[in-house]
Simulated assay, not measured.
Amino acid sequence: MAMITETTCNIYCGPCESKHSENVAEFWCPNCDEGLCSKCMEYHKVSKASRMHKTITIENFTTLPDFVRNIDHVCSSHDNALDLYCSVHGEVCCMDCISAEHSECPGIKSLIKEVQGVKESAFYHSVVKHIEDLTEFATKLHTNRIDNVDKLQQEKDLLIGVVKSKRTEIASHLDKLKQHLLLQIDVTMVQESQKIEEAVSNLQKKICTLKEYKNHISAITDIATDMQAFLALKEIDNHVVHEEETMLCVTEETGMKETSVRIEFAKEIDGLVHEMKMMGNVELTKIATNMHFPGTKSQLVKSSSNIQPGIENIKLTFITKFQLPFDIDINICCCVILPDERVVLANNSNEEKGGIHIFL
């Protein structure tokens, strides 16, 4: 890869560097994974090995997220081009990777064909929709928590008024108990508000993170190659799944409970004034926020095959055959393959010959 310094403008031409010359690159070739100056770009356009490569300007290249720019096109283990895709493990591979680690994996595909049309695929739209759903849910939770803080403040004002009114009704000797109760209210409100404000802060961070992923996708859609987009979307999707899992944890935190507060006055308030030790207790009511979570990633059935959906893309593979040990005509109405690879056939011929047949 061409040398990239801390300033994004200092990306040097790869071919020139190989000749020990430093020329600032004006273009970037994702296939070659290096920058090109204007002179080398002309050779790049006409070279048989690179004339079909799609290049972009350095300005556009530097707008891509770092993790997209750092996607490798060459296998780090074997130094070969990553031009194959294992759908079993969801990994890009080179020929040596297939021999060493994926020799028994069915469905090894050409990476070029696998990533073709990724920016218009169902997989692409599912990642975007997933981010939008989580963002919408987090925004609703964020608003709900802020409203709860306002509600607590209103309840606080109301409770203080109730306490003062009760204090006037009873005797002046309860002033000390009144101050104690007001302090208890203040402490409770501060503690609960802090918990909710912490939840609000966490949700705000989630929203910012999800919006950043959405912005990354916009940049990827406009600029990145199909392979970059495919691999970047998979990485973003993994991050979004993680954000979803942590989102579920956030919803179960104490600060996410619908918090309310009230005062239960002591039974002796209307009676034995001089014997009372407490004026009342501050009580909290917590109710789970009544908001529908958009769903977990595990509930979404998706795979890279979603890039080209449709029954016409399903391919059957012949594995084996066996001869049924029957001399008479039978009527097979159902077939099941057990986890241990035994085959179970349901024979619906007649009462005498019918039944369940299990084959090893």
Score class of each variant (00 low, 15 high):
Ile287Lys: 06
Gly271His: 12
Glu258Val: 00
Ile330Leu: 02
Ile196Trp: 11
Ser193Asp: 06
Asp222Trp: 11
Phe265Glu: 02
Met189Pro: 11
Gly280His: 05
Asn313Phe: 14
Glu212Gly: 11
Leu203Arg: 00
Thr317Gly: 09
Thr225Tyr: 12
Lys195Met: 05
Asp222Glu: 13
Cys208Leu: 09
Lys277Gln: 10
Thr289Leu: 04
Ile217His: 06
Ser298Trp: 13
Leu284Cys: 03
Gln204Lys: 05
Lys206Ser: 05
His239Gly: 07
Ser305Arg: 13
Asp237Ala: 02
Glu252Arg: 04
Ser303Cys: 11
Ala229Lys: 09
Gln308Leu: 07
His239Lys: 12
Ala266Gly: 13
Ile328Ala: 09
Phe318Gly: 02
Thr254Leu: 06
Glu268Tyr: 03
Cys208Asp: 15
His242Asn: 13
Thr317Tyr: 12
Met279Lys: 05
Thr188Gln: 15
Lys205Cys: 03
Asp327Ile: 05
Thr259Leu: 01
Val273Gln: 15
Phe322Ile: 01
Lys277Cys: 06
Lys302Tyr: 13
Ala229Val: 02
Ser193Cys: 05
Glu312Thr: 05
Asp237His: 14
Leu233Asn: 10
Glu192Tyr: 04
Met189Trp: 15
Ser218Arg: 11
Thr209Gly: 05
Lys234Val: 12
Glu243Thr: 07
Ile263Ser: 09
Ile263Gln: 11
Met276Ser: 09
Phe230Arg: 08
Gln204Phe: 07
Lys277Asn: 10
Leu316Ser: 09
Val261Pro: 10
Glu312Asn: 09
Asp327Gln: 15
Met276Arg: 01
Ala199Tyr: 09
Thr320Pro: 04
Thr296Ser: 08
Ile223Thr: 09
Ile217Asp: 08
Asp237Val: 01
Ser298Asn: 15
Thr251Ala: 04
Ala229His: 13
Thr221His: 14
His292Cys: 03
Val200Thr: 15
Glu264Leu: 07
Leu231Thr: 12
Ala266Trp: 12
Lys297Leu: 09
Ile207Phe: 00
Thr259Ile: 00
Val261Phe: 10
Leu248Val: 12
Thr285Phe: 01
Val240Gly: 07
Phe326Gly: 03
Val273Ala: 14
Ala232Val: 05
Asp329Cys: 01
Gly280Gln: 00
Ile217Leu: 01
Leu284Val: 03
Leu272Trp: 14
Glu264Trp: 11
Ile269Ala: 11
Gly255Gln: 02
Glu198Tyr: 11
Gln191Glu: 14
Ala199Thr: 05
Glu268Gln: 05
Ile220Asn: 03
Lys277Ile: 09
Gly255Tyr: 01
Glu268Asp: 05
His274Asp: 15
Ala288Lys: 06
Met256Val: 00
Lys297Val: 14
Met227Tyr: 13
Thr317Gln: 13
Ile269Glu: 10
Thr225Gly: 06
Met189Thr: 06
Lys214Ile: 01
Lys267Gly: 02
His242Tyr: 06
Glu268Gly: 09
Pro325Val: 00
Glu312Lys: 15
Glu197Asn: 13
Lys205Pro: 03
Ile287Gly: 08
Thr209Cys: 00
Gln194Phe: 03
Asn202Met: 08
Met278Ile: 14
Thr259Ser: 03
Lys195Asp: 13
Glu264Tyr: 14
Asp329Thr: 05
Ser305His: 15
Cys208Met: 08
Asp327Glu: 14
Cys208Trp: 14
Met189Val: 10
Glu268Leu: 07
Thr259Pro: 02
Val261Arg: 13
Ala266His: 15
Glu312Ile: 03
Asn202Gln: 10
Thr221Pro: 10
Lys257Leu: 01
Ile220Arg: 06
Glu244Thr: 06
Gly271Tyr: 14
Pro309Ala: 02
Ala232Thr: 07
Lys302Cys: 08
Leu272Ser: 15
